[in-house]
Design a protein around this nucleic acid. Structure first.
Lengths: 337, 337
DNA sequence: AATATAACTGTAAGCGGTTACAGTAAATCT
DNA sequence: AGATTTACTGTAACCGCTTACAGTTATATT
């Protein structure tokens, strides 16, 4: 690979001048600029990022930590991030934390050593420990799809409200025995999707004077099979639901199939409502009614915010709650009397 | 951030010694090693990757170019890559080429400037131009999920054979009017998934003495909606299929729903077979019969191969064809007579 | 004409590491 | 005891780039 020295030699100038040309410094005569560009062209020269990073203490790289890239929700968030990074010439180091705390910290460490300009962090729960680590390493960070009580920028949604709305909608259609399939709860800490959504569910029941049946509250793992099993158990119980709220679309797909495999029909016997509004949520039969999260925007806005922070620009509001909305399809109907 | 100098000073040794400690050189006394480690600990020192990359001309980074990360197929391949890179301490720069040639080349250029140690390239078609670019830049590359006639390492499957097997299976069950939903053909170049699978489809029909109906050959875009529309059109035609081969599971999901929405039933009236065996292929009702690709392995093996190449290890076979297999579920039944 | 200014260009010192080579002290050999 | 080897440690050059500062011209000002 040709280096800046080669170009300088061939163009008959100093390396400083070559550098200036490639950094669009205005203090270069047109003639020199052309000479340099021609020499560079001839040698196929492009500045070396590692060298440049070292000299400028800037890598034009951001780290991206997600729990599981094979989950369609995250994949869509990543698309949003990718698109804006592309515009601003940032590159992304992908870190799949595999839902493990330990791996998250490993990755944070690694990203720090790599001098990434910032990181977008999509975790299940932003703990005090996380906060400390980021603060001490003065790594710039913004949370995607997650909120927190700490003073850290984020862009997410109001999970409590979203769940509340979903359940309220079911109640408004006459449903009284409403089941929920949630995810791992992790000590009931706030700002965990599962916890907030479960709370929203309960609050909606309470506010409408309905009973909370523990038998209708099941935990699963955010996967298709988990949703299927949880729904199956619920349907086998004493108290059977007339509607099920699954806190991810994938789990809702499992629930719908469980309803069928139990010999019942959806939505006639049991309504099912999901969460996320992934691409495939319209592919189920019945098509899935769900709470839509703006996944792409979460990613895009988080990326844009991070880049602003990196550039030292002023941010008016660094804790952003995006709007969710109900997407009505066919998996939910009024309770038949 | 503490530098090697700080550590050297605090430990009372030279920077060379510190470097040796961090590179596990055997020529350091135990006492010195401990001193250095303690000093490093105290300062929170970790070697800077950019500096190290520059000095060693090695970044421990690989580039990963995929057409679309939000496609579950790629997501799974990426998981395989991620897992082995993690083991060997490589990091991944994610490049979403968005199915655009131009972006692919842009990314290749960028990866070169970043001195990545190698790239895993998952493209639709590995052209001569690609070949030249990689050869001239002497960037190490291995193709994932793609084969080529060029002398470039790859790990993929035999798409022709896989499609042939799928269609042959349908024929063995008595089907004669078999439709196919393929993807973009791009001038019928070989080693493009769509082209090879379409050829396999045709060959199976020919070898069994069956007619090829042009009306039963539809193009779509590898998405759910595309599969739905293509199937819909096919079912509205003069000659209606008794079985449909969709060359991706997502499109097969669309096809199944099209069958239902046409007032027919699957598999009783129309059998549907997919391709890939993504996670959700068991979530459809009927559960999808499909040709399984070892997606995770494609990624994992490609990554392992690339790392070997980077390390200059000898590779006995650098063009690997993995086995596909039929996964029989419920969306295909024998033709009723 | 002498001086000040503007418009460039080059020199050299970093950035934070690695590593060839040289140097030193202790241990072993003859 | 002197020579040789072993085990470690330090010096300094280098990786490819940026940039402060110091020139060097050419042009404008007085």
């Amino acid at each position: 690979m040709a280096t800046i020295d080669d170009v300088a030699k061939l163009a008959g100038v100093s390396i400083a001048t070559v550098s200036r040309v490639f950094n669009n410094s205005p203090w270069v005569s047109e003639k020199t600029r052309e000479k340099v560009l021609k020499a560079a062209e001839e040698l196929g020269y492009k500045p070396s990022m590692p060298a440049r990073s070292l000299a400028m203490k800037k890598t034009n790289t951001i780290g991206l930590i997600v729990p599981d890239i094979s989950n369609p929700y995250y994949a869509e968030v990543v698309r949003g991030i990718e698109d804006v990074c592309n515009i601003y010439k940032y590159n992304i180091i992908l870190c799949n934390a595999d839902n493990k705390r330990e791996k998250e910290f490993q990755y944070i460490d690694m990203l720090k050593n790599r001098w990434v300009d910032g990181v977008i962090f999509h975790c299940d729960y932003f703990s005090e420990e996380h906060y400390e680590v980021f603060k001490n390493s003065n790594l710039k960070v913004v949370l995607a799809g997650r909120t927190t009580k700490f003073d850290v920028p984020y862009v997410g949604i109001d999970n409590f409200k979203a769940a509340y709305d979903a359940v309220n909608y079911l109640i408004s259609l006459g449903h009284k025995r409403i089941g929920i399939i949630h995810g791992p709860l992790d000590d009931m800490k706030e700002t965990i999707d599962s916890v907030d959504r479960l709370k929203g569910y309960k609050q909606a029941l309470i506010d409408n004077g309905l009973t909370i049946y523990e038998e209708l509250i099941k935990e699963a793992n955010f996967k298709y099979k988990g949703g299927y099993k949880a729904a199956m158990e619920m349907l086998k119980g004493e108290i059977t639901p007339t509607a099920i709220f699954a806190i991810s679309d994938i789990m809702a797909m499992g629930a719908i199939n469980a309803v069928f495999d139990k010999g019942l029909s959806c939505p006639e016997d049991v309504s099912v409502i999901g969460f996320d509004n992934i691409d495939l949520s319209e592919a189920t039969r019945p098509a899935l009614t769900t709470v839509s999260q703006p996944m792409y925007e979460i990613g895009a806005i988080a990326a844009r915010m991070l880049i602003k922070i990196i550039n030292g620009e002023e941010i008016n509001n660094s804790q952003i709650i995006l709007k969710h909305k109900l997407v009505l399809r066919n998996s939910v109907v009024p309770l038949r009397s």
